[in-house]
């Protein structure tokens, strides 16, 4: 691995938001391919972050800083990757469903997905099914992630999936669900494509849903 890629991986691990885009630019200036910079530098760093997180050597706030550094780097890299026809991980729309103001879980999954290299569009909380349908039409995401904390608002996940069906969009996106009262069984019952029990599992699931893991 070249020195610059090593530096880039380290910047990601350290969550260095200022330096990561600079290092990406430097790597480009040195003539490295965008895809090489992504896979052999940034993703290497993020993989190490994942390893350390699992081992208990890194904690959520640090992982989120790394995810932000990843996004800062991708900002420079993404247009070049698109232009080169490289396959990107894809887009995720995240929302806490209608009637629910609890969004910390949704935010965590969104940030973890960003760390994994997804582009994340966050619709916020208390989001009605129609707005999610609208956003799917507009952004054409690969995945829609739905979150709820209350058993009463869990139903909105089912309403949203039904609304996607009625709009003829259901087969265009994968739907993943999560939140404290949600489980695998409920996810199956409402016809979601997957369930994540925590933020890291959510990001892993997202990768699986786009065939990247």
């Amino acid at each position: 691995m070249s020195k610059i890629l090593e530096q880039l991986a380290t910047a990601i691990i350290e969550g260095d938001i200022d330096n990561t885009p600079k290092l990406v630019q430097k790597a480009l200036d040195e003539g490295l391919e965008p895809l090489t910079i992504l896979n052999d530098g940034m993703v290497m760093g993020m993989n190490e972050v994942g390893r350390r997180f699992k081992a208990g050597d890194m904690f959520v706030p640090e992982v989120l800083m790394s995810a932000e550094a990843m996004q800062a780097g991708l900002k420079v890299l993404r247009p070049l990757l698109v232009a080169s026809g490289a396959k990107l991980l894809g887009k995720v729309i995240m929302a806490t469903v209608q009637g629910d103001l609890h969004d910390i879980g949704k935010n965590l999954v969104g940030m973890m997905c960003e760390g994994a290299g997804f582009e994340v569009i966050d619709l916020g909380f208390d989001v009605p099914a129609e707005r999610i349908v609208q956003a799917v039409k507009e952004h054409k995401p690969d995945i829609v992630g739905l979150s709820a904390l209350l058993t009463t608002t869990m139903r909105q996940m089912a309403y949203t999936i039904k609304a996607l069906e009625e709009a003829g969009l259901r087969d265009k996106v994968k739907v993943m669900v999560g939140g404290a009262p949600v489980d695998e069984e409920f996810a199956k019952k409402i016809g979601a494509d997957g369930y994540g029990s925590n933020a890291a599992a959510g990001a892993e699931l997202a990768k699986k849903l786009v065939g990247a893991a």
């Binding site: 208990g56 904690f59 959520v60 910390i104 879980g105 925590n198």
Partner: peptide, 8 residues
């Protein structure tokens, strides 16, 4: 607190 290892 949020447990910073598990987010629980």
């Amino acid at each position: 607190q949020m447990d910073m290892q598990t987010t629980v």
